[in-house]
């Protein structure tokens, strides 16, 4: 296993586990950027993470444990909806996928695959058109924003009872994380939040963690979790068959179409950051 020497990846906060999934006692093991880490729940508000003998910085946020193998350059991104008192916050899934984190972020941003991969749930033929949407890079917050995304969905969420045109907003506030805001099936004035937090086990393997934060008084936690786990498991074989497994940042490496606008912005954003881990660098 090659050691990670990418200063950008080393300075990031990375998710490693859902807080609620950590057993009350005993040392747990996981892997991040090719390194074995151990972590332990001290109590409900404290988790310690170690790399060998070295104690790593820890942030507990959005239901997950986050750590950093280098020196964190900034705080973890903001997700203010998480604190809204009437939201259901559910750590919905942790799924292992044999792919790089950036490939998984890109798949999360892509609406074009919904009718074919999530048939009957997030999309259905013949409603396959990805309409024109807007993509901007917010330089102050250093994140990508895709707005005005509109897509027909037969079963947009666990709490849905029929097909709707879903409004989507995507945020990419972290090279390995993406947040999706979509029409809430039970309250027109609010947006449901689905966040994808990727743990780079190594350059070509991830643990995909999902936070679901919704206005939904009907569905059980189990309904919400099973919905999300099924969606992730449908993506898994698609992601695992993408080659190369690392995301090529050279603009000539893969040919985008108009629907890939957000992916084009994401690749450019990663190039600007100089991220190396999980990507294939553009030719100089």
């Amino acid at each position: 296993m090659t050691q990670c020497s990418d200063p950008v990846a080393l300075a990031l906060w990375h998710p490693i586990a859902a807080i609620e999934d950590i057993p009350a006692d005993g040392k747990q093991k996981t892997q991040l950027l090719g390194e074995v880490l151990h972590y332990r729940k001290m109590d409900d508000t404290r988790v310690s993470v170690h790399h060998g003998d070295r104690k790593l910085p820890v942030t507990l946020a959005y239901g997950y444990v986050w750590t950093c193998l280098g020196t964190p350059e900034r705080d973890l991104f903001d997700l203010p909806e998480y604190a809204e008192s009437d939201r259901r916050n559910v750590c919905a899934a942790t799924v292992g996928v044999n792919v790089s984190a950036p490939r998984a972020v890109e798949n999360f941003l892509d609406m074009g695959h919904f009718p074919f991969v999530h048939t009957g749930i997030l999309g259905a033929e013949p409603h396959t058109e990805v309409r024109e949407y807007q993509v901007n890079v917010d330089t102050e917050r250093d994140e990508i924003l895709a707005t005005e995304c509109l897509f027909y969905q037969p079963q947009a969420a666990a709490g849905s009872s029929g097909g709707v045109m879903s409004d989507y907003i995507y945020r990419v506030p972290h090279p390995y994380c993406a947040v999706l805001y979509k029409s809430c099936p039970t309250d027109e004035s609010r947006l449901d939040v689905i966040a994808l937090f990727l743990q780079s086990v190594d350059e070509e393997n991830i643990r995909a963690h999902a936070l679901v934060s919704v206005i939904d008084t009907q569905s059980s936690d189990l309904d919400i979790r099973m919905f999300q786990q099924n969606i992730f498991s449908q993506d898994k074989p698609i992601l695992e068959n993408q080659l190369p497994k690392r995301l090529p940042l050279d603009p000539r490496a893969e040919t985008p179409i108009r629907a890939d606008k957000s992916a084009i912005a994401y690749r450019r954003w990663l190039r600007t950051k100089g991220l190396q881990y999980g990507v294939l660098a553009a030719a100089a």
């Binding site: 859902a18 999934d21 942790t94 189990l222 309904d223 979790r225 099973m226």
Partner: peptide
């Protein structure tokens, strides 16, 4: 009847 095998 759904029984959550993983992670629960």
């Amino acid at each position: 009847k759904a029984i959550e095998f993983y992670p629960a």
